[in-house]
């Protein structure tokens, strides 16, 4: 556990980091970034809280099993999304321009970026985001659990 200043800062920053991470995931098809980058940002939020509060406390808040479950859910939703297009071809983006969710057509010319477009891409970004936050979260947790064992205090 670190000083009170650090803990307070972490408390304030944690929700902002999560929001920023999910923003990157959700806007993956419009702006630089995407599922992996957003998931990594979210995992840094986990790392921030974990470092400032110490592993002993954090392991009650964030369970490793939940993170591995997030990993499995992300991977499965990614491959299921890929499988839905198998009627035409694997990974076929049948949702784009279909009028359904994320199915709007993009008008020609410069535009501010429409979120409700690109079909399967945002869904796959979301799946990758969930997977990466789970995977990197588990990595951070395991590394911290090893650090705890060698802690002097």
């Amino acid at each position: 556990m670190m000083s009170k200043i650090v803990r307070t800062q972490a408390n304030i920053l944690y929700p902002l980091i999560l929001i920023f991470g999910f923003y990157i995931v959700a806007h993956g098809h419009l702006t630089p970034g995407g599922g992996f980058q957003g998931g990594a940002v979210i995992a840094t939020g986990v790392a921030l809280v974990a470092i400032s509060f110490g592993y002993g406390k954090i392991k009650k808040w964030i369970k490793k099993t939940n993170l591995t479950a997030a990993e499995a859910v992300g991977l499965l939703s990614f491959i299921i999304a890929a499988f839905t297009g198998i009627g035409t071809s694997f990974f076929c983006n049948w949702l784009a321009n279909s009028g359904l969710i994320f199915g709007d057509t993009v008008p020609y010319g410069p535009n501010p970026g429409y979120l409700n477009t690109a079909g399967l891409l945002p869904i796959m970004n979301l799946a990758v985001g969930i997977e990466v936050l789970g995977g990197l979260g588990v990595v951070v947790m395991y590394m911290l659990s090893a650090a705890k064992a060698s802690e002097v205090k």
């Binding site: 499995a72 991977l75 499965l76 499988f83």
Partner: peptide, 20 residues
Amino acid sequence: HNSPALIIAVPLFAAFFTPV
């Protein structure tokens, strides 16, 4: 027709579902 893709997709799906 789909066997080239399925050869990758089936073990990949199986791998992701195995921990569950």
